[in-house]
Design a protein around this nucleic acid. Structure first.
Lengths: 404, 404
DNA sequence: AGAATTTCTTCGCGTCACAAAAAAAGAGCG
DNA sequence: CGCTCTTTTTTTGTGACGCGAAGAAATTCT
């Protein structure tokens, strides 16, 4: 915690006002007072400043006059909302086989988005950075704005990402380690760039737009190519003391020194399933990157060995999740991934394992929500993260390890 | 985060000043400026208020004049320190077979302390509360003060403790569940009372006085009667969203649905060891509660089955710890407990397991410190927790689940 | 004794939040 | 159409705070 001065005071309160406006859509000053517990005077002053800066606009008063019985009298409220044009941010998501880019406005509405289905893994870093540069240039142009209006850029990718330094310690995307990817992109595009663990992006997206809206503590588990875990703890993204996002795949399962990623990641499931399905005509699917669909289909068809594989993965995942739930006591766990999204064996096994594995005293059991994310929900998460910094949350700037 | 007003501003800065004085012992105002980055004016004003309230006293200037070459000139510094007499707090620790009570002054120095070797487990709650009342009365009298000078009381006990509500959801100490123990004690003694998980007490003690002084992120593992885990995360005690301290014993080990507490707690070790050592003349030790000493002795004597038991416990603990280290990335792990404190097999196995189980990319490996706690370090932790609230850390009052 | 030096306090200013009062912008009604 | 009534928003005045600059205090050095 920093020392306090009037400036910090104002920053805190301005953030609260911004946050209230963002969350409560078009909103009158009076309601902001209610929401933030600030006095009318203060709200008036802060909103005046925000209006002046163009971050907020009064909603066109056309045809409101909400005839709620006792609200129709008196001076009409002026509804305020974020000015979508105030700034634009770009979110980029890298996976081993494609790049998704999305440009959003200040309200985190998608203006333009594109996907490049390019197998980038193990390409040289400079090539990947070039591809990102091109994608962003194009996507920004598609959005009909110029690069100079882009206030920030956030790249999400799997692996160990040091947000603070912009270093990618390791990632399935890069052959090398300790890649200063944020710097590489920033240099190319001249836009403030941040890199972030991909799951944190979607965690933020869930928090702002998804199932977890308004929930302060929840977990997100993604069973994508790799296993991902995002933790929202007291309204903040949880990072270890080193500023790194948690790594679900690296967790140990038992006394056998097996890591969860070796059992329950999509890669692990596919590897096992491939052995089973070999020669049964699914080879093409696997090669085309649709292996998971084939696996799910085989399970639905009743293939017992595939079912066993999925069940084992679900159990392992459920067990690990139970430990995390016991630690963090989230109100909600959001799950996604092809093998989960379609329901079925894996999800059932997971549910059972979590239920059975939670310490009996643990209550209440968190909700388990399955949420299929569209490609651009990642990008919206990136937007959210960037916007959050633009608003300037004064205490922890989504913060990693604090300096001092 | 609350909304900010001048009052909060002052509270924050006053806390910083108090904290600086506490940490840096007798300290001059100028140094407080350096430490807190506050202006001389502000420090002067705040310290003046603290002096007026009697929370801080100027150190008797007798015989200082630290002749550091360039410090000997000019107006001499007035060193300030916490006024030990400003308040007193009482810490109580309950274990299944004894009660420890300790009275400390405002500097967290122990004034008096006593231990009642009474087997209290499964006694009715009212009896235990009575015993605590008597112990506190006596201990406060021993300290030479009156009850009215006691500003707070903190009871530490194992189990699931809801600090916020003062409810003890479950504990090996009580037969019942959901015991409103804080209220019971407070009613008897008329002193603001808080209950807390015992490990959190010692975690706080480590943070203020022990190995972990000045470290913002560390873990504490206690292998006492039960397994305990305390987590300091970014300078705050980590609690799940429900406000409960983490529970190491409840963590699952592997796909076998075995909980760590069933393998690596002192109770589990003793149970297994008893079967091995049965009839070898250790019966008396076990009955006298010195079982662990006997086990350690047997291991040192080379008993292979005992060694195997300890090794297994150490490995299991190490594995679980590795997961926690991967999550929280602490700089330090403090271990204690009879079986650990004496070094030997268990500790070796634990060390190896942690080292081997950490994801290879995890760096740096945290220090593993073994720290044998005296009985009253628990009580000092209780004092620290209470004092922290007295100082009034304004943002998170050691805080559990936030209202809203 | 006076100069130099370092520490601490006082003074004046700008910023902030806030309560009270005033102004604004309609709706209802005769 | 003018008047009152109601609710929202802005303006005004007050008190608290932190801060830089200047001043007062308490020493040592010369």
């Amino acid at each position: 915690m920093k020392t306090a001065d009037p400036e910090l005071m104002r920053a805190i309160n301005r953030f609260h006002v911004m946050d209230a406006i963002r969350r409560a859509g078009p909103i009158a000053r009076v309601e902001i007072c209610d929401l933030t517990q600030l006095s009318a005077t203060t709200v008036s002053a802060i909103t005046a400043a925000l209006l002046e800066d163009g971050l907020v606009v009064p909603r066109a008063l056309g045809g409101l006059r909400d005839p709620a019985p006792d609200l129709a009298r008196g001076r009409p409220r002026v509804l305020l909302e974020l000015n979508p044009q105030a700034a634009f941010v770009v979110g980029v998501k890298l996976t081993p086989d494609h790049i998704t880019v999305s440009t959003t406005d200040f309200c985190a509405n998608t203006c333009a988005s594109l996907t490049l289905p390019i197998r980038i893994s193990r390409q040289p870093v400079s090539v990947i950075a070039d591809l990102v540069e091109d994608g962003v240039q194009r996507c920004v142009a598609d959005a009909g704005i110029g690069m100079e209006r882009v206030a920030g850029l956030c790249v999400g990718l799997p692996g160990r990402i040091e947000r603070m330094t912009g270093l990618c310690q390791s990632s399935p995307i890069f052959g090398e380690t300790n890649v200063p990817f944020a710097a590489a992109v920033q240099q190319r595009l001249g836009v403030p760039t941040v890199i972030e663990s991909d799951v944190n992006l979607v965690t933020m997206a869930e928090s702002w737009f998804g199932e977890a809206r308004g929930i302060e503590d929840f977990l997100v588990v993604s069973l994508e190519h790799a296993l991902g875990l995002g933790i929202m703890y007291r309204g903040e993204l949880f990072r270890g003391a080193n500023g790194l996002a948690p790594d679900l795949g690296g967790l140990l399962l038992g006394s056998h020194a097996i890591r969860l990623g070796a059992v329950a990641s999509e890669a692990a499931i596919l590897a096992q399933a491939q052995a089973v399905l070999n020669g049964s005509g699914h080879g093409a699917s696997f090669r085309a990157g649709r292996g998971m669909a084939a696996v799910v289909a085989a399970a639905q068809a009743g293939n017992p060995r595939i079912i066993a594989i999925l069940r084992e993965a679900g159990e392992a995942l459920g067990m690990a999740l139970a430990n995390l739930v016991a630690l963090f006591a989230p109100r909600l766990v959001v799950l996604a991934g092809e093998a989960i999204g379609t329901g079925g064996v894996l999800l059932d096994a997971l549910r059972e394992a979590v239920t059975a594995s939670l310490p009996p005293s643990h209550s209440p059991m968190p909700d388990l929500a399955v949420h299929r994310w569209s490609e651009d929900s990642w990008a919206r998460g990136a937007a959210a993260l960037t916007l959050r910094d633009l608003y300037g949350a004064p205490w922890n700037t989504t913060g990693p390890a604090r300096p001092r």
